[in-house]
Write a protein that binds this DNA or RNA. Structure first.
Lengths: 353, 353
DNA sequence: AGCAGTTTTGCATTCGAATGCAATTTACAG
DNA sequence: CTGTAAATTGCATTCGAATGCAAAACTGCT
């Protein structure tokens, strides 16, 4: 009762059978105009007199009608849906990006269809879905192989990479290049007397990780320090903790550990404190990358390099908009600098050394 | 070059103008069958001989064709899209729910259209979008007023509430009722000698918060303790920190603080440690609610009550599936128990008291 | 009132797949 | 080889809004 039969006197007056959806024809009948007129009233800049518009809007409101986006998409070849591909793993960086992107896209009247991609093997089925739904564009902040990216070219679907890219492939890319801040960061450590560094990197196949690693190496070299050892992680908290164990086995221990992201830095710090009874930063200096919200919490107060996620998402959406409006446009790579966050996880080299 | 004109010999053979999309008719032509046959081959259980099916699948693959979900949705009245409404705020509980839901829904061949809702004022435009996209169902884990929920009834769109509900309104609801665990938790505190409690609650308008609060009051009473004071927060980290200041002003200080969610507990703990120089749990016991991943990190190791998010999301999707398949079905409320997580943020009452 | 120029309007078609129905083919029993 | 039942196929229509085109309705001006 009241559950299945939406009641509405106007519906009955027009004798629209219950169960049938209200269409623009119904609105047209009620307003006493043609279906085309209704359509035009709902199209920004559509040709319609003030009087017609008024009647139509009133009728639409009366019937609770909204244009059917599927039908519209079918005819206009625009779905207004953007697929966002995000890693579903526990790196808290992704939710931040996702929410920021969603917010920006909704300002552009674009809807987000969310896909979580936890490994490259997940990508193919996702791409099928994407093509079925006639998605207008794709923003990818997750795993993807070159051949996956190529599938988008076949269907002419704009693809914007978010902090990922293939070196030899042209496509739109939004990047954060934290090189200058990496130098600052390493210099700051160096100024505090550190010269024996360790690096906890990400997966060797990951471009972002490789770039960060390269930046760290260059910076350390420039400061005259040494990278004693490099332990690879996989960007998770657990892998940061695990990396510390490997680092502690070195005969000559590092005094400063640079991690390729915040999650690993947090894992490493927790492991240092709880398992090795080391104080951070008194006994050990640790830094991260990303500047995620959790790393800012007082328990960590991580010294890190923040990505300007908000501005990067703005850029991603702007680039995407451009692609949609001017498809003959060439690809663009927008690179943002990071921001050094002065936390409380680095300090002077301990005396014992 | 190579950017705008997808090349494909087969396309040319069928002389499909570049720019036009491949349709089921094209596939039909290539396979030498009718369009209906193509359609049937892609419909599970559709009537088609093995030979036809083979030809059609080959042709489809050749042309890279996938059924157009918009056109399909138009005719079948099923979009296979589910709207998920999530609070975009910094409570890390939401991303966990979102990713879990997305995962479950994709197993049901349902796509997630994501909407972030940060206040009740955001809801109306979101509802417009939802109705335009002919979304099959809605899962709401965010703000919503009663009149909003009623709009879904008008369009007969199934609505599943996730950890929210209106008392007097029938609709599907997935809930976590942590009452039994709340008793356990309070008993555990009581056994450690605590009798003076404080509560950091959520917004007074929030049902979840009110229920939790009620549970805590009952449990404390049952244990013969007293709730010295209640400070309201808004579920954010910052509000937890702020609440502590108010609690510290009490002449008679509480020895155990029960927070209505983990984020506030974490904020409160950090504030206690950094600003008030209190040790947790030695000087002060603190508990949370939700059991989010961040609260499990070693720096917090929060004693809390975990919501079985995975099972709850399973249930949400199951209920939704039921609604879609049998619309005459009545509403259902599925209630899950929490799980007491033994962290390291509660301990015996300190001696000084 | 009459005319050219501009807006507004409606008609008819289109987007791409699904499906009821009737025609056709196939399978099988006798 | 025939007859009948069952499986397969194609035809034609449908979903709901957008739009090119031509007709109609205004506008302003003489």
């Amino acid at each position: 009762m009241g559950k299945n039969q939406p009641q509405n006197k106007k519906r009955e007056a027009l004798n629209i059978p219950a169960g049938r959806r209200v269409t623009s024809y119904d609105v047209a009948r009620l307003a006493g105009v043609s279906q085309s007129a209704v359509s035009r009233c709902f199209k920004p800049g559509g040709s319609a007199s003030a009087k017609t518009r008024e009647k139509v809007l009133a009728a639409a409101k009366e019937l609770g009608w909204q244009p059917n986006a599927l039908a519209r998409g079918l005819i206009t070849q625009r779905s207004n849906i953007v697929a966002v591909l995000i890693s579903g793993n526990v790196n808290l960086y992704y939710p931040e990006v996702l929410f920021a992107l969603t917010h920006r896209l909704s300002e552009e009247k674009l809807r987000v269809m969310l896909f979580t991609v936890d490994s490259e093997d997940d990508v193919d089925p996702v791409l099928d879905q994407i093509s079925q739904f006639q998605v207008d564009a794709v923003i990818s902040a997750s795993h993807m192989r070159r051949e996956h990216a190529e599938r988008f070219e076949e269907t002419n679907t704009p693809l914007v990479f978010f902090n990922r890219y293939f070196e030899d492939r042209s496509s739109d890319v939004i990047l954060c290049d934290p090189e200058p801040q990496t130098r600052q960061l390493v210099k700051r450590l160096s100024d505090q007397g550190h010269s024996r560094f360790a690096v906890v990197s990400g997966p060797a196949t990951n471009m972002v990780s490789r770039t960060r690693l390269r930046g760290v190496r260059a910076a350390v070299e420039a400061e005259g320090g040494t990278i004693i050892t490099e332990a690879p992680g996989d960007f998770t908290y657990e892998s940061g903790a695990a990396a510390l164990h490997r680092l502690m086995e070195c005969t000559e221990r590092p005094t400063a550990i640079v991690c390729a992201n915040d999650m690993m830095a947090m894992g490493l710090i927790d492991e240092a404190r709880t398992v090795f009874r080391l104080r951070v930063p008194e006994d050990l200096s640790v830094t991260g990358f990303d500047g995620i919200a959790t790393a800012r919490l007082a328990s960590y107060d991580l010294t890190t390099i923040r990505q300007p996620i908000g501005r990067m998402c703005d850029a991603a959406v702007a680039v995407l908009r451009e692609q949609l409006d001017r498809p003959e446009r060439t690809y663009e790579k927008r690179v943002f600098e990071g921001l050094l966050i002065d936390g409380a996880t680095i300090g002077p080299v301990p005396d014992v050394y």
